[in-house]
């Protein structure tokens, strides 16, 4: 076993992968949100469609998106590996355990939250990404370029209150996941300092509230606009 696999197969190494992929996904959320917010620009989806188009032709963005998918998978696979390992570490459960007195609910349920977010992700990808990539999206003219009309897919989807509800709920899960995951990633990387950790924790909490709220705001606004 080389030193690389030895390190990455240790409990610490596995956590390192979770933290690194997690931080990457946190950054991805910011970029994704920046794009999504363009849905709210009252220009019949012109900016959004242009943005979606540019994303799909830029090689850099496309390679990053492949990395992104890989990291999502890595994050999921390693979480499963770790969870199985952790379950084995306590073969006989306690009859009574008061976890709530010593830790936050989110920190103890990252796996469940992650699973729910992953289900959302699958639905989300099926609804948008898959239809853009493999469906036959309508075309629309933006300036003098013909681009896929991604905007209309979104508009259609967010007319469905059940889907909007599912989306918003999933953002709540995401918020809880981030509320622990953000600061936890830094801790795993060893970035803990009396001066900076309290800042990281506050930023993490702010991030966990702000980003999912903005994400959730979009379907709500669009749904309200549609009725």
């Amino acid at each position: 076993m080389s030193w690389v696999t030895k390190t990455l197969n240790s409990t610490l190494g596995r956590k390192l992968i979770m933290a690194l992929t997690g931080i990457f996904l946190i950054l991805f959320l910011v970029v994704h949100l920046a794009g999504n917010l363009q849905l709210l620009i009252p220009d019949e989806g012109e900016s959004f469609n242009l943005y979606a188009h540019n994303m799909s032709i830029n090689y850099f963005i496309r390679s990053v998106s492949i990395i992104n998918f890989a990291f999502i998978l890595l994050h999921v696979v390693y979480s499963i590996v770790l969870t199985r390992h952790n379950k084995k570490a306590r073969p006989v459960a306690y009859a009574e355990a008061k976890g709530s007195t010593n830790s936050t609910w989110a920190s103890r349920n990252m796996g469940i939250l992650g699973t729910l977010i992953f289900i959302f992700l699958l639905v989300h990808l099926r609804g948008f990404w898959y239809r853009l990539k493999f469906g036959l999206p309508d075309k629309v003219m933006v300036g003098d370029a013909e681009v896929d009309n991604a905007f209309i897919i979104v508009v259609e989807a967010f007319k469905n209150p059940i889907y909007v509800g599912f989306y918003v709920l999933s953002m709540v899960f995401l918020a809880f996941h981030l509320s622990h995951g953000f600061a936890s990633a830094f801790q795993t990387l060893g970035l803990n300092h009396k001066k900076y950790t309290p800042i990281i924790e506050k930023v993490g909490l702010g991030f966990a509230i702000l980003i999912p709220t903005l994400f959730a705001l979009i379907p709500i606004v669009m749904y309200l606009q549609s009725i």
Binding site: T11, L12, R14, K15, L82, H85, N86, K88, A89, R90, G99, T101, N102, S103, T104, S107, R108, M110, H180, A183, S184, Q187, T188
Partner: peptide
């Protein structure tokens, strides 16, 4: 055979 850390902080608490 100990488990990995989820940074819940229960240990320290």
């Amino acid at each position: 055979g100990f488990g990995a850390c989820t940074n819940t902080g229960a240990c320290s608490a």
